[in-house]
Simulated scan of single mutants.
Amino acid sequence: MATIKDIAEKAGVSISTVSRVLNFDESLKVTAKTKRRILEIAEEFDYVTVRDRKSRSGQKIGILNWYDSEKELGDPYYLYIRLAAEKRCHDLGVEVVRIDFDCDEDTARKLDGILAIGKYGRSDIDNLMKLNEEIVFTDFSADNRCDSVVIDFKESMDLALGYLYGRGHRRIGYIGGREFFPDRDEVSDLRFKFYKEFMLMNDIYHESDCYFADFSLKGGYRLMKEALEKPDRPTAFFLGNDSMALGAYKAISEAGLDIPNDISIIGFNDLPGSKYMVPSLTTIRVYQDYLGQAAVDLLLESIGSNREFRKKVVIPVKLMERDSVSDNI
């Protein structure tokens, strides 16, 4: 079994730095690159902290996913987070109960806490907190009443767009999705927010280069076909997730165009199959496994500490440079 010393040696940092990163010490001052490196090695070694190796027998948490089974298969991003969370619970001896918004109060009272995966509106949060005050939101920052585990969307978009910009692209299209809370209010998409911010800052924003549907393969296919109908199209596109990128690949191929010689593509999430696409997809890696694991750890820590303040854990991302982007000279 791997130890903190093993991780520290491979990462080239001190044992105390590894320990503080793995325990989400917010006072630790290290670069995102260093934190990302430590998390990658810990994941590679399948490391579990000594504290978490202790039995948690008898604890029970509810997992709520805003995606149903059909949506999970269409966009497996949240599926991977849920599976990672459930595996973490299994490894720690914590019982998992899958719940939905129709969960009754008797069931909720028997739970030590709730892990909510996905996006939730204010009324949803209010209703959840009536069921159980120990809640961790995953991939969504609710408010100061609840803990959360999120990714750094600004860093993500700066990495993706900065990479395209550095390769000479100035017309960079955006193909993304629209999402809605269970109460039907629209979710503010931070990918598009920081895309627009980057493009405006560099004076290259064109509203006509932005397309929206749902975050699915079909959505990416339909929107790319629409974009390709325009004679004056961008030289590169950012896709809201890798499922959409796969759909875009199909549309581009059907149009007789080549990736990356005719159009450069960059995705988001780095799903397991993305490196096997032809050409292999350049994308932003989101550590979905660690999002799920960290959410479970944070929930159990909160249950055990009865602390009065809330925590937000930010998981770093990484640019996976592959073959779907070329220089625009």
Rank of each mutant, 00 (worst) to 15 (best):
E105V: 07
Y165H: 14
D189F: 01
V149M: 04
D158H: 07
G74W: 01
G168W: 13
V314F: 00
E105R: 03
P316F: 02
L246H: 10
R167G: 02
L131H: 00
M157A: 06
G58W: 06
N144H: 07
F153N: 15
F192N: 09
G273W: 09
E207S: 13
R109M: 08
L164F: 05
Y47F: 15
L190R: 14
K87V: 08
M201H: 11
D25K: 00
G12F: 06
V50K: 14
Y276H: 13
D91S: 11
L319P: 09
G273H: 03
P76V: 01
G220H: 04
N65T: 12
R56A: 07
D143R: 00
S14T: 12
R285H: 09
I99R: 10
D297P: 01
S188G: 06
R36C: 10
I204E: 14
P231R: 10
S16Y: 01
G166W: 06
R145D: 09
I4V: 15
V296F: 07
V48Y: 04
A108T: 03
R51M: 08
I15C: 00
H206W: 00
K60F: 02
D68M: 09
T283P: 02
A236Q: 05
V317K: 01
I329D: 14
F137L: 13
D323W: 02
V286G: 03
F194H: 15
I259K: 09
L300K: 05
K130E: 12
N132K: 01
E9S: 10
K110C: 03
M244Y: 11
V286S: 09
V278W: 04
V149N: 01
L159I: 10
F24A: 11
F309R: 08
F194N: 07
V150W: 02
L200A: 09
E197I: 05
Y287S: 11
A84R: 11
P279K: 00
D75I: 06
V18W: 03
I135Y: 05
R20M: 08
A160E: 13
G62D: 12
P272R: 01
G220K: 04
D189H: 04
V50L: 13
I151H: 01
K250I: 00
E86G: 11
N132C: 13
K119C: 03
F180L: 07
K54P: 01
D75S: 13
I38F: 05
I7V: 02
R36F: 05
E226Q: 15
S216V: 02
Y195I: 12
S27D: 13
S123P: 00
T107A: 06
L200I: 10
E44A: 11
K71F: 09
F24G: 01
Y221S: 08
K250H: 05
S123E: 15
D112G: 14
G240A: 11
F140M: 07
L271Y: 06
K5A: 14
A245M: 08
T49L: 14
V97M: 12
E9I: 10
S324L: 06
L22H: 02
M199Y: 05
G177A: 13
F198R: 04
I15K: 10
D262N: 15
L217Y: 10
G177N: 07
N23P: 03
F238C: 06
L164M: 14
K54F: 10
L164A: 08
L164Q: 07
L128V: 05
M277Y: 13
E105A: 11
I252E: 13
N269K: 03
E95K: 07
R51G: 14
R170C: 08
Q293Y: 06
T282Q: 06
V317W: 04
E70S: 13
